Amino acid sequence: MLAVVVGGCAGKGQIDLEGGVGITSVRSACPSVGVPASTGDITMFDPPASRDASAIDVTAVMTNVRSTCDETGADIVTTVRFDVRASRLRGDAPRDVTVPYFITIVRGGTAVVAKRIGRVNVHFDAGQTRAQTSGTASAMVARSAATLPEDVRKKLTQKRKAGDSNAAVDPLSAPDVRQAVLRASFEALVGFQLTDEQLKYNATR
């Protein structure tokens, strides 16, 4: 199943006043893509133990995050591309800086089911304090895991006529339906792979 129609109705974006009540909503099998809080930038210090502003060596920001999704096979493949914009304090000699990043698959909003670590290399030319590079990450989700069970789908698409006792009841208010939708919902999240100290710095500065 590539999409789920929520609520009983005639067609996408329409309200069926004769056969039932409800408004169509389309659920994609592709995971949503984002950057977790406090992981979209990284600061490196020299010396590493210092947290003084004067000790900031290199900073980098992850930006222009975009994705493509291939739903044609047994696995749903999401490819995420992003840019890394970096700056350094000293711009005398050429320099290469390696920045680690991650992509993780989160199920149901809380459960991390897979994670990969990658690295991008940022090259500074001599005399330059700014540089930019790009990175790519991919993730796969089994179509069977992102597909709602047939009984849950029937509950979501069941037509409800005006005046029926359940006409105004949101099917997602049922715990079993809500949990099934959560289990079939995935996110692909990318960010810099930070140390505990770097994450603390980002969260408290």
Rank of each mutant, 00 (worst) to 15 (best):
R153M: 10
R81F: 10
D41A: 11
G191A: 07
P31T: 04
Q158M: 10
A126S: 12
L199T: 02
R66G: 08
P36R: 13
V61M: 13
R107I: 08
G109C: 11
D16S: 10
T195Y: 00
V26D: 13
R153T: 14
V106Y: 04
Q198M: 03
N64R: 15
L89K: 15
R143Y: 03
S87Q: 15
T129P: 05
V99I: 15
A203D: 09
D164A: 15
D151I: 01
A53Q: 12
S144L: 09
T204A: 03
T78F: 02
V181N: 01
A168S: 14
A126C: 06
E197L: 11
A146K: 00
P31F: 04
D176W: 01
A93Q: 15
R95I: 01
P171E: 14
V190Q: 10
V99G: 04
A146S: 11
P48H: 10
G40E: 01
G118A: 15
L17Q: 01
V26G: 07
T133S: 05
P47T: 14
A74V: 11
P36E: 13
T136M: 14
A3Q: 14
R90A: 10
L172C: 00
A37F: 04
T157F: 03
H123K: 06
E187R: 15
V61C: 04
R107Q: 15
P47M: 14
A49I: 08
S165G: 05
V35D: 06
L17F: 03
C9A: 09
T72W: 10
